[in-house]
Amino acid sequence: MDFKSIVYVLLGSTVGLVLRMFVKYKVTIKTGFYINNTSVVNILASLFLGILLALNPINQNLLLLFYVGFLGCFSTFSSFIYDLFVLFQSKQFVRLFFHYIEVILISFLFFYLGYYLIQIFI
C-alpha cells in the first residue's frame, strides 16, 4: 500500500464520517415505520453501493476512495445490531423481527434501484 492510496482512503473516510455525523444529529425523519437515523444511513449507503457496482470502476484508487473509505465509514453495521439489541433487551420480539426484515428488504430494494437506474442511463 503506497502513500497515494492511503491518502485516498483517509479522504473517503473523513467525508463518510462527517456525513454520518450530520445525518445522525441534524436530520429528523417522521415516517409511519420504525425507520430511525441509523437505518437511513444504511439505506443510503446501499443505494450508493448499487450505483458504484453498476458503474464497475476499473481504477483501483476509485474503489479505495468510495468502497473502503466513503461507504465503509458512512454505513454502520454495529449500530444496526445495537438497535436490534435494545429491542431484544426490552423483550419486544415482534418489533425486533419487523425492524430486521424491514431494514434488510428496503436496503436491497434501494441497492437494486441504484443498480438498474444506472444501467438504464448507460
Binding site: 446501499s46 457496482l53 465509514c73
Partner: peptide, 20 residues
Amino acid sequence: LLSGFCSCFTSFSGFIFFLY
C-alpha cells in the same frame, strides 16, 4: 469509541455486497 471506531470498523455496505 462507538461512533468513531466501531461504526467505521463494521460496514453495512460490505454486508450488502457480501449478500449480493
